[in-house]
Design a protein around this nucleic acid. Structure first.
Lengths: 357, 357
DNA sequence: GGACGCTGGCGAAGCGCTTCGACAAACCGT
DNA sequence: ACGGTTTGTCGAAGCGCTTCGCCAGCGTCC
């Protein structure tokens, strides 16, 4: 009969809706997009038809015609030294808030490297890109600059020129931890940081935290040692032992490595040092985790959800060609729980909770 | 000049390539898809132009014309009681192996619910769907059946008719744990399972593991207690205490809840029970985790990577309309490490490693 | 009351690609 | 030498949508 023609897809098209509602195809389009005024009457007729037929616009056609896919790419890291639960929380927040902006999320892993980014962006599969776990000198940064598609980075590369970046202010986070401990009278503290590989790779957050700790320590007359720290129990134990060997008077620990927190507690217990009576511990880790440890940990959470939301909202702004700040740093907040107390032989009015013990 | 016409996108199109190579557009398409024979000569000319111009096919146009988006959806759970690292591993495996099949992955979270699935599928944004964390009576199952798009489920719903499902054989996993312990002479074992919410929700794997444990226990004349278990330290502690109160002679524990493993070890230590001398522990958790604990844990890993690969490969088969088995169960394997030993007062030749202690 | 501006709607031109049918040219057997 | 294949290429028709330009009506303003 109809000569050529492939099988129809089964899904109703905009033409079906138009026919059913007795209007032109373009009218349906305008009703759905709201880009032109349509009378109440017509709009209702169209919307009724849409519902009745169960119409869903074809994403490919829409992308082709409008040059917007309504999809953003999320590049997640999957290598060692990443904090899996944080990444997950982050991904979740991104998906949820992208949906809130009527966008979907395409998942990429960093091991496809710059290649993958290029493929995706050039093919117009996505409108913009969100990149996590950015290193100080990240190979993807020049690519992102050249890509011609909006992007937002989670983390700070060395040179943020022409980029849009969001992150927790880890420098400030390091300071906050030390300030809290200093306020409690601690004079010798140590930072158990991320695994060595993370520092070597030049991942911003690890360096920035360390810098914050060192700087605040200097300012408050506190002696600070910083050590990288692997994630397995034996290694952690060795580190802790080493720490106390080098500095027997150590009275406080800042632990940045979520996976190390449990082992650190175990190691301290094994050394006969009680938390918080002998040693105070501040962790940089998700709140939930801090709540579930025992004793409950004084902590600075990485606000993955908020970073995710911010990142998406910045990206959306860039998709609309609105200006965005180059760097957005979120203020860390420290929650005092049961793992920090005044240094032995010291009482300060600084922290009521701790002083009351 | 040109009257209408919007700004060109900047990216070269297939027409540019055709012009540059001096062939027809369709020829370029056939070179790229390989769907028709093209002479060596022409092919090389075309490919050279493609590289030279940096051509990348426009995903939307391709999807529209071919009715295939080359994208699959991955629906991840994000609620309580999930094992975050496992989910992450899984997602990674899916993305990687989807890329191997020239597909990208769209990330959905289950909290958009059936709605989201419908939107995605009806809009032809994706060709197929991968659903994780399927419950016994999952609301999404009927939808998937009706969707008209291929799907693969991770996990087993009660009725697998017309579906394609992959999972670890958790029933067998439960058995394997008990068999190992029984072989070591243990006669009273307990299963510390997933959080209660997971059982209530009717998540298959938790029930299946429990069933496997119970069945194998019965068959080997072992007394088995099973308890759900939350993930925070205090709760775990209480459970462990409760367990030994009810059954002082308990000599082995199967822990299915990765997050509970650390706290379980702590609790046992607090009760003065040594692992593995007084109590053997088998965990169902990622290998990496088991390696890093101390003592290193005898474990049955959830082979997230392999499940992911399998799932993708099954989905690809379904996309090509090839038949697939309804249920694919992966055989669990137990790795003996240092947390299990022969029951006190018993020596069996069953496990050399343990017997040697 | 005619020029004018609005509103609301229509038609058609693509967006960049795949795929179908057509068709020369080369190749085959007889 | 001739019909019949096979091989390689081309042209054109969409895929389903957005968007631009246009126009018919209708109220407004001197």
């Amino acid at each position: 009969m109809s000569g050529r023609g492939r099988v129809p897809s089964g899904q109703p098209t905009i033409a079906d809706v138009a026919r059913h509602a007795g209007v032109a195809v373009s009218t349906v389009s305008y009703v759905l997009s709201g880009k032109r005024a349509i009378s109440e009457l017509t709009r209702n007729r169209v919307l009724a038809s849409v519902r009745l037929l169960g119409y869903h616009p074809n994403a490919g056609a829409r992308a082709l015609a409008s040059r917007r896919a309504n999809v953003i790419a999320l590049v997640l890291p999957l290598r060692s030294g990443i904090q899996v639960p944080v990444v997950m929380q982050f991904a979740t927040a991104v998906v949820t808030s992208a949906r809130g902006h009527d966008h979907d999320v395409l998942l990429l892993t960093s091991d496809e490297g710059p290649q993958g980014l290029h493929r995706i962006a050039a093919g117009a599969l996505v409108d913009g890109v969100l990149v996590m776990d950015v290193e100080l000198h990240d190979a993807r940064v020049p690519l992102l600059r050249a890509l011609g598609r909006p992007s937002v980075l989670i983390g700070l590369p060395a040179d943020t020129d022409g980029l849009t970046c969001v992150d927790l202010d880890f420098h400030r986070a390091g300071q906050v931890c030390v300030e809290h401990l200093a306020g409690l009278g601690h004079r010798r503290v140590a930072l158990l940081g991320a695994p060595a590989a993370v520092y070597e790779r030049g991942t911003g957050f690890a360096h920035r935290t360390r810098a914050g700790v060192v700087e605040a320590a200097a300012r408050h007359g506190v002696e600070a040692v910083t050590l990288p720290c692997e994630e397995n129990a034996a290694e952690v134990h060795a580190r802790v032992v080493e720490l106390f060997a080098r500095q027997p008077e150590l009275s406080a620990l800042v632990v940045q490595n979520e996976a190390a927190v449990g082992p650190v507690q175990a190691a301290l217990a094994a050394l006969g040092r009680r938390v918080p009576d002998d040693v105070s511990v501040v962790a940089v880790c998700p709140d939930q985790f801090a709540e579930h440890a025992s004793p409950r940990l004084t902590s600075v959470p990485v606000p993955a959800e908020e970073i995710g939301r911010q990142a998406v909202s910045l990206l959306m702004r860039r998709l609309r060609d609105e200006p965005t700040p180059q760097v957005t740093l979120l203020e860390p907040r420290l929650t005092v729980r049961d793992s920090t107390a005044a240094a032995t032989g010291t009482t300060t009015p600084y922290d009521n909770r701790a002083a009351a013990r």
